[in-house]
Each structure stands twice: as C-alpha cells, then as structure tokens.
C-alpha cells in the first residue's frame, strides 16, 4: 500500500499521505456504515441518533449489537458489557502500533490516536508502517476511515432504504469488500516463515467461530498466531 516511497528520501509521511492511504478503508467502511444506518433506522432510531452512535462508539460490530440489543429490550448495563467485551481485542492495538511507529518526529496526544484504533485501521497500519510513517500519517488514516464511517451511517439512515430494497446485487457485492481488503493487506506480509502462524490464526478463528462469538474467536486466534510466531523466532521476525 504505502511501502513504495515516491517523495523526498527523508521526508516522513504525514496526514495527507495517511488520508490517501485510507482509501481502501473508506471503500470498506462506507457500505458497512450504510448497513448500520439502515439497521438503526429500522430499529426505530432517527438518523441523528444513528449518527450519534457511530460518532461516539465507532466500533462496527459492537454498534450493530448495541442497537439490536437495545431494540430487543436488553438492560442498558448488559448492552454496555457486551460492547466492552466485544472490543477487548483492541487492548493490543495501541501498544503494538506505538512500538512500530518511529520515536523521533511529531508526537500527538494519545487520546487522539487511540480513538480511531479500529480493527481495520490497525490492520492497515500494522501492514504499512515503515520508519517514514509518522503519527500524523496514522491520524490521517484514522480520519479518512472515521469520515467514511460517519458519511456511510448518514447515507444509510437517510437514503439507504432505496439502495437496500432496489439494488440487492449491489448489497451482495459490497459484502465482499472487507474480505477483499484483508487479503490485499495480508499479501505483502506473506513470507515462507510467517505462513505457519498466519495459517494457525486463520484455522483457529474458522473453527472456533462455529462454537463461540466471532469477536471472541478473533481474540483467541490473534493470540495463537502471535504466540506461535513468538515461539518460532524466524517466523516472528518475518511476520513483523
């Protein structure tokens, strides 16, 4: 994605470059956010309330859960607990990215960087960061993704009903955006030595997700894959 540098050799990649690199995330987020807007309005939220949830929570799957559980009459405390549990895997994201970002250069307030650390932002950043990718680059990626998420939510809530009922084939095609994005991010990371940990993570999540919720399976798979990489020194270094 952004591994090939085209600017001056020592100039770090900044906000604008990050915004440009977030295009693939925007493509992935927009249709999903439209789906969320549709769901939220379908469950009785106004477009403004749907936008509020997207703006404040900003965590895809748990937003769907939040709205669905509330609509089903679940207690507020259990809904908040479910949202937190679903996002526990994000515990790792900040420390991993900070360890990869170069230390010299402009430092941004940590709350600013933490807010937008979604799965996909983390995946893109972890796959892209080189010594030239600074914190402002990461902020640019996050802002692009966040903007697409909010715009998609608004579109879904206001005009999404038309797309949802009128263009089912478009909706079907958009279901493949995230798998396509993840594969595109994974391909540059594939090395012979990293195959075993990555394959283990994929197999574990595929099996576990039949028995436990996807977000929990994801957390276990990440730990298994990274644990294997840690135990196999060459694999760990290549995977990084």
């Amino acid at each position: 994605m952004s591994r090939t540098a085209t600017t001056a050799p020592d100039r770090p990649f900044g906000f604008g470059r990050g915004l440009g690199d977030s295009v693939s995330l925007m493509l992935g987020y927009f249709p999903i956010a439209i789906s969320f807007g549709l769901l939220a309005v379908g469950q009785g939220l106004s477009p403004l309330q749907a936008l509020l949830v997207s703006a404040v929570v900003y965590a895809g799957a748990s937003q769907f859960t939040l709205v669905s559980l509330l609509a089903a009459g679940a207690s507020p405390l259990s809904v908040i607990g479910a949202v937190a549990a679903m996002n526990l895997r994000h515990l790792f994201y900040g420390p991993v990215l900070l360890s990869q970002l170069p230390r010299p250069g402009r430092r941004l307030p940590r709350p600013l960087l933490a807010f937008g650390l979604t799965d996909e932002v983390f995946a893109l950043a972890a796959a892209s960061i080189t010594p030239r990718h600074g914190e402002t680059w990461l902020l640019g990626v996050q802002m692009g993704a966040y903007g697409a998420w909010l715009a998609g939510t608004v579109c879904g809530a206001i005009v999404g009903n038309v797309a949802g009922s009128g263009w089912p084939q478009l909706q079907a095609a958009l279901a493949f955006v995230l798998p396509a994005l993840f594969l595109a991010l994974l391909l540059p990371l594939l090395r012979r030595q990293s195959v075993i940990p990555l394959l283990a993570a994929a197999v574990v999540v595929a099996i576990l997700s039949r028995f436990i919720p996807g977000h929990a399976a994801l957390l276990v798979a990440m730990i298994v894959g990274a644990g294997l990489a840690a135990l196999l020194p060459a694999a760990g270094e290549e995977a990084a």
């Binding site: 895997r89 790792f92 420390p95 991993v96 360890s99 990869q100 799965d119 983390f122 995946a123 950043a125 972890a126 796959a127 279901a175 493949f176 995230l178 798998p179 993840f182 594969l183 991010l185 994974l186 990371l189 990293s194 940990p197 990555l198 394959l199 993570a201 994929a202 197999v203 574990v204 999540v205 595929a206 997700s209 996807g214 399976a217 994801l218 798979a221 990440m222 298994v224 894959g225 990274a226 644990g227 294997l228 990489a229 840690a230 020194p233 694999a235 760990g236 270094e237 995977a239 990084a240």
Partner: peptide
C-alpha cells in the same frame, strides 16, 4: 517483542478467515 510484532499480521489473517467464513 516478537509476540507483539506478530499480532498485526495474525489479526489480519484471522479477520480474513472470519469474514470469508461468514460468506
């Protein structure tokens, strides 16, 4: 350190597998 560095690629592989399985 190796564990932390490998979390990113592992999470991408897991998310890919999960999203494909859903389809």
């Amino acid at each position: 350190r190796r564990f932390l560095l490998a979390l990113g690629p592992s999470s991408i592989a897991a998310m890919l597998a999960l999203s494909v399985t859903d389809l």
